[in-house]
């Protein structure tokens, strides 16, 4: 399925939070995870803009670690505020998806 960009816009940040919530990780690995999941249009640049925003909003803890190739890598882990944000994301997601399902099933 192609061109999910518009539809994913509001949810990608939540997806990234979820991935980081599993274990401390870095941008490229997050991108690969999303690609494997079937979101092929997501590039590292998109993930980078999200990570930058998470950092700015103080939802993640950032650690620089040396990497085998090239410059040091930034690793991201959720902090308390990030975990709270993630819980909020899932609550919102449940609400929206249940409403949309209802709509599809012809309810009111």
């Amino acid at each position: 399925m192609d061109d999910l960009t518009e539809m994913l816009k509001g949810t990608l940040e939540g997806c990234v939070l979820q991935i980081i919530g599993r274990e401390e990780t870095y941008g490229y690995a997050i991108t690969r995870r999303l690609n494997e999941l079937g979101f092929h249009g997501v590039v590292e640049g998109t993930v980078y803009t999200i990570l930058l925003r998470l950092e700015k909003n103080k939802l993640v803890q950032v650690t620089k670690r040396p990497s085998e190739q090239g410059p040091p890598r930034k690793f991201y882990a959720l902090n308390d505020a990030g975990r709270k944000e993630l819980a909020t994301f899932w609550a919102k997601w449940e609400y929206v998806s249940s409403r949309i399902d209802k709509l599809k099933e012809g309810g009111r």
Binding site: E44, G45, G70, P71
Partner: peptide
């Protein structure tokens, strides 16, 4: 920083950030 990482990994710049540079 971000570009240096991408270049070090041997990626092309559009591969890294996508075709829509303005959106990035």
């Amino acid at each position: 920083d971000f570009f240096e990482e991408g270049a070090a990994a041997g990626k092309g710049v559009l591969e890294l950030i996508g075709d829509d540079v303005a959106a990035f």
